[in-house]
Design a protein around this nucleic acid. Sequence first.
DNA 1: AAAATTTGACCCAA
DNA 2: TTGGGTCAAATTTT
Length: 295
Amino acid sequence: KKTHQMDTKKALKLKAMNHQLVEGHEFATKLQQLLSQPGSGHGLAEDLAAKIVVTFNKAISVLDSFEPISSSSSSLAAVEGSQNASCDNDGKFEDSGDSRKRLGPVKGKRGCYKRKKRAETWTMHSTVLDDEFSWRKYGQKEILNAKFPRSYFRCTHKFTQGCKATKQVQKMELEPKMFSITYMGTHTCNTNTATPTIKGCDDHQDEITMDSEEHKSPSLLTTSMKEEEENHLHHHGSSTENNLVWQDLVFEEDHHHHHQAIYVCGETSQELMVFGAGGDFEFSDSIFDSCSNLC
DNA sequence: AAAATTTGACCCAA
DNA sequence: TTGGGTCAAATTTT
């Protein structure tokens, strides 16, 4: 009984938190839209807005990964699973989404490759290509009826840490300054490996202030993208605490809000594609720890 | 030398 | 068969 009550309580808190995040996301998205209006030349602000949106997306998805089967409430649905024949072979390891192996004697069991587990998927539009994770490009494809190719990235730590997160990036036809970025799966890797920024709570000594624009591009770019990415300074330093600070800022102003996010949450199976994933994604508590530290 | 990218081949689902 | 996601050898970058 008691446990159940606790769970309920927890669930409520999670839900409240989720609500705040969703709201924050909407604000950030709105801001992003405003800033991307043709007239304004707020490159920096745009970048920041995009980062904020990304941050909210991630926070929401993390939270959703915790959400028990109860009402999902947030934008990320979930489950529906059922299928997934699971032809023995236990899985767990080794089934990280890519299992193609050519030369082999081939399919001993035909049906076994269909690992249609679903990973959380969300796509957003942004002028910014980098986020706090490190990615490795592993492919690029021309897409039918699309002007620009799509590039494929996987987490750098896929093999060292078994992180299953991937993302796809494609320049948008209209508004070529923007990219459509689809994230698939949440990171299970040690983020601090990728993001060396940590520190105490003194926060913002952001290198954001300096707007010299002679940065070399990161590495998330497509060949065709490279040509015209130049005006984007990207700085980094986004760390957990920074994100939290931003969240606070956003939460404080609490008035008018519209709903219409630029990003789209959904499941892979539908319009996008299927993506294999072994077990469920589980997240470290570090995020929550840092959260409780700061809040 | 190691790590990242490029790019055509390969493979699967529709 | 075709479109699109992934592999992996070659190549480039760090």
